[in-house]
């Protein structure tokens, strides 16, 4: 089995490629070759032993589908790929569109659908939650400076002011809303999202849906340490049926296909979980799942090859991950190979 995986950028804002590969290789049934798809000659995963067996540069998602397709064809000729697992948000649209053409080449994928990618958009997620009775922070869209004065009374300060794609500020009064509003409209345009600020602790769930509504597995985690960039640097698996059932419900209602990460906040006031985000791929902490007894990446592999997969219904509570910094040493020759030839 030859499996290509992207996202070897195990940096301080890590992609999930390295933990995905570790998970798959950790499974006793796995035998095959892992092909790393990389974007930059300095992605740390390139220089780790026993991660990807061979690595190829592939074009950035912004270069267009044809170029990506051609590159994949060229690699496929050498490596006879059986499956590609893209793991970065920005890649997914492209791979979803290429899905059928890859299938024609005999390359399998197991991806969310375009509809899945769309419901998770910031302005659509709230509608999805409303329809299915899932708590989500209240949301309104501002489309002109005038709207700032018409923010409904039930929105209490502090508020979160968010751009449609990026950026979020916490505003403590209307003046701060105006400042944030001006900053973001200048950069990203309209609309601006005003979101209820919910005070509480963050919880994350890694899950895998088979596309029919069934949850193959789900493991909840509480972050123990968060970096100044908001990334979890340590976390622990927890036991919480409410959170687990809510996650399964989201997978069921969206008929989610592929891996995902759900981000929740547990309100201090009401003790209820609020859904903040659906990330349409496994998170960078996914290796915690097999470590706690649910090898979700390997289960995705089985699903992709059309095998019957029994859902997991257990995991070890109290499993901890601690991320580490570790300097890899390499020679300029390896760097040259990647930089000049695009493969190593």
């Amino acid at each position: 089995m030859n499996i290509a995986i992207t996202g070897l950028n195990a940096t301080d804002n890590p992609g999930p490629g390295v933990p995905l590969i570790r998970s798959i290789k950790a499974h006793p049934d796995f035998s095959g070759k892992i092909i790393g798809f990389i974007y930059d000659s300095l992605e740390p995963g390139i220089y780790m032993d026993d991660v990807a067996d061979i690595k190829y540069l592939i074009p950035y998602p912004s270069s267009g589908l044809e170029i990506l397709y051609e590159r994949i064809c060229a690699i496929h000729q050498k490596e006879k790929l059986d499956l590609i697992i893209p793991s970065l948000d920005s890649e997914l649209y492209g791979f979803v569109k290429l899905k059928d053409r890859l299938e024609d080449l005999g390359i399998k994928t197991f991806l969310p659908t375009l509809e899945h990618l769309n419901i998770r958009a910031k302005d659509k997620l709230f509608d999805f939650c409303k329809t299915h009775g899932i708590n989500a922070p209240k949301n309104i869209l501002l489309t002109s400076p005038n709207d700032i004065n018409n923010i409904p009374k039930d929105f209490e300060y502090p508020l979160v002011v968010k751009g449609i794609f990026y950026d979020a500020y916490i505003a403590n009064n209307i003046e701060e809303v105006k400042t944030a509003f001006n900053k973001m409209t200048a950069k990203w345009g309209y609309p601006i999202i005003i979101q209820e600020f919910i005070k509480g602790a963050e919880f994350n769930v890694v899950g895998l849906g088979d596309g029919t509504g069934a949850t193959i597995g789900a493991v909840p985690m509480k972050k123990l340490y968060i970096t100044d960039k908001g990334k979890g640097w340590a976390g622990i698996t927890i036991e919480d049926d409410k959170l687990l059932n809510l996650s399964k419900m989201i997978i069921e209602k969206s008929k989610w296909k592929s891996g995902l990460e759900l981000e929740f906040i547990k309100s201090e006031k009401s003790n209820e979980y609020y859904l903040l985000e659906i990330n349409p791929r496994f998170p960078a902490w996914v290796y915690l799942a097999p470590s706690a007894g649910q090898n979700l990446p390997y289960a995705l592999l089985d699903l992709a090859f059309g095998k019957q997969v029994e859902p997991f219904n257990n995991y070890t509570v109290g499993t901890i991950f601690v991320r580490a910094s570790w300097d890899l040493i390499t020679d300029i020759k390896a760097f040259e190979k990647i930089a000049v030839l695009g493969e190593i």
Binding site: D40, S41, I58, P59, Y60, E66, E70, R71, G342
Partner: peptide, 16 residues
């Protein structure tokens, strides 16, 4: 010149 993040000659070309 190689710049990290911009040294992907396969990726940056927008033509085939």
């Amino acid at each position: 010149k190689h710049y990290s993040g911009f040294m992907n000659k396969i990726g940056t070309s927008s033509f085939s």
